[in-house]
Design a protein around this nucleic acid. Structure first.
Length: 276
DNA sequence: CAAGAATCCTGAATGC
DNA sequence: TGCATTCAGGATTCTT
């Protein structure tokens, strides 16, 4: 998403902001959305930390930013002002060149908020996030330090954005498969070498996802509206009951914490048989 | 503390 | 065909 927006080269000035009558994510961090403060600003760059997109703007010699989270069904697209608005369009940022950045989100689990750049980086939700999953400082040693004593299952450790930011259910399950680790294994039972393996697998599945333009089951689209292709490469997510692509064993499904998952009972064995 | 459930929403798919 | 139920790339908040 970030790369697609960067490619769109939104270098003009923000002339106006339009919002639908519906709120996006409500809750502590998004309460003071302050979106109107971007009007008059000029786009500088799009950055990212985990699943949070950061739009950096210059406004009267001051750095201002917008944090965007797509939630489950959020989409950002760059459109011409005259283009028809998709259903569930909730925010439109109009640019001086006639283009618009549009936030479309049927379920409204996504969020947007604006503030001065430094404030944005030093307050929730950004300040609560762990290291980015693709940052070189995300290492086996780091994960061991943060989760090595935890009784939580590995899948949930990977989903905890305060430990490592940027991994969702799909990529967590895929990474565990590639690291040959059981998703329901308690974190405290892992050895140092396995943590390294897991970090390596996370990096590989995320980079593959980016190369393939994202994973589109239903809602995800790139900045130009294009579909992702990564759903074709998934080894375990959504494949419970189907044969493992490596060994042919029927993949096992599970539900934990209200979220479903799958793994190969042959390739992702539990070290000592006991599990969650 | 941490694990689990309920919650915020809509739409697609499935079941009867 | 129509209506009800279930489930979904997420995160927060409350309860146990």
């Amino acid at each position: 998403m970030r790369r697609g927006l960067e490619r769109a080269e939104l270098r003009g000035r923000i002339t106006q902001l339009w919002r639908s009558e519906f709120a996006l994510r409500t809750g502590q961090h998004w309460r003071e959305e302050n979106l109107d403060c971007v009007v008059g600003g000029t786009s500088v760059a799009f950055e990212r930390h985990g699943k949070h997109l950061l739009w950096k703007l210059r406004h009267e010699s001051e750095d201002v930013g917008v944090v965007i989270h797509l939630g489950m069904s959020g989409r950002l697209t760059v459109a011409q002002g005259a283009d028809a608005r998709a259903p569930h369009t909730h925010v439109i940022v109009q640019m001086s060149d006639g283009r618009e950045l549009r936030f479309v989100d049927p379920r409204r689990f996504g969020g947007m908020k604006a503030a001065r750049w430094e404030e944005l980086r030093s307050t929730p939700p950004l300040v609560d996030l762990g290291v980015d999953a693709l940052d070189p400082s995300f290492t086996g040693a780091y994960l061991y330090e943060r989760a090595g004593a935890s009784q939580r299952i590995l899948r949930d450790v990977l989903l905890d954005q305060t430990i490592v930011a940027g991994i969702g259910n799909i990529y967590a399950l895929e990474a565990l498969f590639h690291a040959r680790l059981h998703p329901l294994l308690r974190a405290a039972r892992l050895r140092a070498s396995a943590w390294e393996r897991l970090v390596d697998a996370v990096s590989r599945v995320l980079q593959q996802g980016i190369r393939n333009g994202g994973t589109t089951f239903r809602d995800y689209r790139g900045a130009a509206g294009e579909l992702g292709m990564n759903q074709r490469q998934l080894a375990v997510y959504g494949r419970a009951g189907l044969p493992c692509l490596v060994c042919g064993t029927s993949l096992e499904g599970f539900v934990s914490g209200g979220r479903s998952g799958a793994y190969c009972p042959h390739d992702q064995r539990r070290p000592r048989g006991r599990v969650a």
